[in-house]
Design a protein around this nucleic acid. Structure first.
Lengths: 189, 189
DNA sequence: GCCAGTGATGGGACTTGGTCTCATGGACCG
DNA sequence: CGGTCCATGAGACCAAGTCCCATCACTGGC
């Protein structure tokens, strides 16, 4: 028998999400989270650099996105490369079994400014990664920046729809459709 | 003679910027800031909701932007309305006398993640305001979202250039030029 | 001239997030 | 059987942020 229960960070994340739903982010103490997971404050901060990060940690997500952009066909334009990457994400990360969790998580995020702040930073980090990945494809700097911003917007739109319980479409198709719409909207002057 | 020295929040902000430059944001204590301003921790938190905000408070900036968008000629397209608003900002807010301060402030911001986090949140807030202002002009939702994102990008580019000591152009013209470039970049597929 | 009200500030107790250092104790290896 | 890992616990410590009440100079009415 294992000396300790397995997957301490996972238990902490689950406990945190539960408690944030029950009492709100601000009314939940790190000690309470740790206790519910059968651990202590010390262990919490060993796995997460701060209280917010317990809701964000899951992410090799940036790597997946960058990889997706890099492996798009060489002839593809910048936005198409981003589309391919989003598609890949839909296949490997935003899978149906994560939908419910993502929805709960997002509801908690939306309810708290501190958490939205962290989310905003993650978004800029993601955008920066996209810009870099596009640059490596030879896309000129400014074009890359524009494509990355539009890509982030597409992401947002698709993610919001994907989370919606009334919707059953996969993330990939939603992103494709959102991208098409953003494209036409960007053509309007 | 006045009972207290005037402009407590201004003194606090100035003291904070000095100290952040000298020792870094993280190595500066709220108590130290307050002391340098001849005040106390209590007074600091009376004027600023948290330590970060001492570098952001100056902003009725959102209002100016919204107003600028609203007062653009009715026939103007969404991006043109944003351009007008940025122009107005250049006239009323990003004036030459604020350039040095803005540069110092930005250097401090760039050096610290916590501060960039707040900056990212402010940016999303700004984008949201732009979207709303564009919606009130009758711009369709998605078009507004795209225009706002591109507007924010233009803002960023122009702001970076405006801060640069090697540059002496005003904010308005820089924004106009950045907008033109972003427009052509957005046309690339 | 006195006195009560006002408003900016000070003081200090208290909670929580976050850091750091050292102790513990079961499992694995020789 | 004994030593060595290594995940965890324990607790001191600091700074951010909240709260409540005290202070004290000025103001206006009487």
């Amino acid at each position: 028998m294992a000396r300790w229960q397995p997957d301490a960070p996972g238990r902490l994340a689950a406990a945190a999400l539960d408690l944030f739903e029950e009492h709100g982010y601000e009314n939940t103490t790190v000690i309470e989270i740790a206790e519910r997971a059968g651990l202590t404050k010390s262990t919490f901060f060993r796995y997460f650099p701060d209280k917010r990060e317990v809701l964000f940690g899951r992410g090799t997500l940036t790597d997946l996105l960058v990889e997706g952009i890099a492996s798009a066909p060489p002839a593809a334009g910048p936005l198409d490369a981003v589309a391919d990457a989003l598609d890949a994400l839909g296949r490997t990360f935003f899978t149906a079994d994560r939908r419910e969790f993502s929805g709960r998580r997002q509801a908690v995020l939306n309810a708290n400014t501190e958490l939205r702040e962290r989310e905003a930073l993650k978004r800029t980090g993601l955008t920066a990664s996209m810009i870099e990945a596009l640059s490596r494809r030879g896309v000129p700097s400014l074009t890359a920046r524009v494509a990355a911003e539009l890509g982030a917007l597409v992401w947002e739109i698709a993610y919001d729809q994907w989370i919606d319980p009334d919707n059953s479409e996969g993330f990939g198709p939603l992103a494709r459709q959102a991208l098409a719409e953003v494209r036409t909207a960007a053509a309007v002057r």
